[in-house]
Amino acid sequence: MHIMEGFLPAGHALAWSAVSAPLVVVGAMRLRKILRDRPEARLTLAAAGAFAFVLSALKLPSVTGSCSHPTGTGLGAMAVGPAATSVIGTIVLLFQALLLAHGGLTTLGANVFSMAIAGPWIAFGVWKLAGKLGAPMGLAIFLGATLGDLGTYVVTSFQLALAFPDAVSGFGGAFAKFATIFAITQIPLAIAEGLLTVVVMNALAGRQIKTEIRA
């Protein structure tokens, strides 16, 4: 769930960039080391990034009739791990901002936090936890991807509520407002993304894709 360019006040934009930057930089440093040891990994990584970009431009039918786009965070977290997903996700968010005017530079930090950090980790955690609790494979994937997607939307609502607190009820009221407005599109999308991820993971299981870029 992208926050558009210029939507966050300057202070918030800087603060979220400061929160995301260390995490992305750590990821990037680890990635650099991998790339130095295995130069060919840069091609694999680029392929994964391009795949994520193209996937995110895929039109998904949504229950409400409108079309939405999958975030792919859950899929990435389950296929290559949340850490690599963060770096790939940042590159994809940059391309979306620059090529599609979706998202932005000033809001990159906030978007990276919700979609490339929070989303993948929530998806990964839920997926692993559901698996440990004995949930069937398909259900664990569904829950991971759906809750990962919902997680990004909750984090985005949180970010917006912090920036634009309600005049009367403050942060709480604003959070309720943003969460409600986006729920209309995001809940169906999260379910669609959950189902999609199940289909993809099932199809991939039959092909034994090497997860060679797990960071």
Partner: peptide, 15 residues
Amino acid sequence: IRSAGLLAAALLPRA
């Protein structure tokens, strides 16, 4: 949904 999933699954190995 199924088509989109199959497409994504076919696209990843292609990538």
